[in-house]
Write a protein that binds this DNA or RNA. Structure first.
Lengths: 250, 250
DNA sequence: TTAAAAATGATTAATTTTGAACAAAATTAT
DNA sequence: ATAATTTTGTTCAAAATTAATCATTTTTAA
């Protein structure tokens, strides 16, 4: 295995994983650590990776959205389960909306290899899907650094310019009495416009949010056609949502 | 087995496997290693394969895609000098356009602490400015993964919605005869609309691009009011640009 | 046929790459 | 803050690869 081949593998791994460490590379490529270090030194010299203590990182956009990745790790299992179900509802050629929720974000790995168009206002989603088979359309507007997403008049106008088959949206709360609720007006606005401009709306919502109302109730349950949730969801509550007209997948 | 036959087999193998090594080729083609080396030297001389230590590999695998950050590091000194000058032209409260050129990208560190609004179609620029004092407005649209930026109808429409004091734009070529030229139609479109919607247009252009024409000439010199360049710029050329109406800063 | 030219192989020296050992620097834990 | 650990840089030696030189074989052409 010569330098060129190692270089390929290292770069691939850095691209795929976001970061690598010397030990694992040495083991994986079956070569000494000192050589890996030399390789990394060359690659970072060329500006192709960012050298860290003990390894290297992807440079470019990787920095900021990483913080989001960690946040989305709360209830990761449930969210992944939900996303895996959601991905089954997507076909090649689809045009889909994805909002800036942390559950929706976890849909990315499941759709990277699909030839679909994604319209999103979420920076982390875009970052995850760039360079994949997915064609990404980012919703423009003022960027909220905290939410890592675009919101506002221009963003909703942008969304209105497009027509999607499916919208995959997160909500912060859902209840029979007050419908869907969000933690901020801004997010609600995006949810509404994405839903309005897509043929079918999927709600990605873990069971922990059932019968919880958040700061800003903004829509009836009927905004969505399908609710995708996890297996711990209470049967009785599900039944009541079904009666309200939602198709529930779990 | 003569050279022509070996050449064919070597090329086939390189194509199929991606990479080959001298030892195996010598064994496989039943010929000495030195001959294989000579063959590889000829093939690589002709640019048909990439010679590595101990073997050879496919050109496409050996050549690595230059990342944006890496590209921006070419002529970094000149670019930084230009950007430092450009930053002096920015005041608190300004609304500025920044395009997706690699020179413009390097303006980011100089403006991070300014309370201004930046409208940009460049992902790296946005990434650099997020979390700083700058308020970032990202131009939406289809994201070109290679250029790391948004282009197209929706992007230009988005730009038209805003009015900026100043536009900081890169060009790929500039000449007295043919004006400004770009490497792609898409980039030219963005440059034009940013310039049209800002009060003053600054061209950030290192002297290496003077009197060079690129693929797509798209505007006369008069599109910009000010040209910011480096100190190595030829005095005579500068004089001619000044006569054409440009204010030149260096 | 026979000399000249070209291609190949063998040997050896030079170069490049890799690995090992250890001190210096940086990071982490106490 | 201090000690322990990890990571890194440096130096040197070993191994692998290549380049150079020259002899041998094969091909070419008069």
């Amino acid at each position: 295995m010569n330098f060129q081949e190692r270089k390929q593998k290292i770069l691939d791994l850095v691209e795929k994983e976001g970061s690598v460490d010397v030990k694992r590379l040495a083991l994986h490529l079956d070569i000494s650590e000192i050589t890996i270090r030399r390789d990394l030194a060359i690659l970072s010299e060329k500006g192709m990776i960012y050298r860290t203590h003990g390894g290297a990182m992807k440079l470019s956009l990787a920095h900021d959205p990483i913080s989001f990745v960690q946040k989305s790790a709360v209830n990761a299992d449930k969210k992944d389960y939900i996303c895996q179900l959601a991905a089954k509802g997507i076909q090649e050629g689809d045009v889909i909306f994805m909002d800036c929720g942390s559950t929706v974000f976890r849909l990315c790995p499941f759709i990277r290899n699909m030839r679909i168009k994604v319209v999103t206002n979420s920076l982390p989603v875009m970052s995850q899907l760039l360079g994949s088979a997915v064609s990404v359309n980012f919703v423009g507007g003022e960027i909220d650094p905290e939410r890592q997403a675009a919101h506002g008049i221009i963003a909703t106008e942008h969304i209105r310019r497009y027509r999607a088959n499916k919208a995959f949206l997160g909500v912060d709360g859902i209840s029979l009495a007050n419908g869907l609720s969000a933690a901020s007006e801004k997010e609600a606005e995006i949810t509404l416009s994405m839903s309005a401009n897509s043929h079918e709306t999927f709600l990605l919502c873990d069971s922990g949010k059932f019968e919880k109302d958040r700061y800003f109730p903004f829509a009836p349950l009927s905004l969505a056609q399908t609710l995708i949730t996890d297996q711990e969801a209470d049967a009785e509550i599900i039944e009541s949502y079904k009666k309200a007209g939602l198709k529930v997948v779990k």
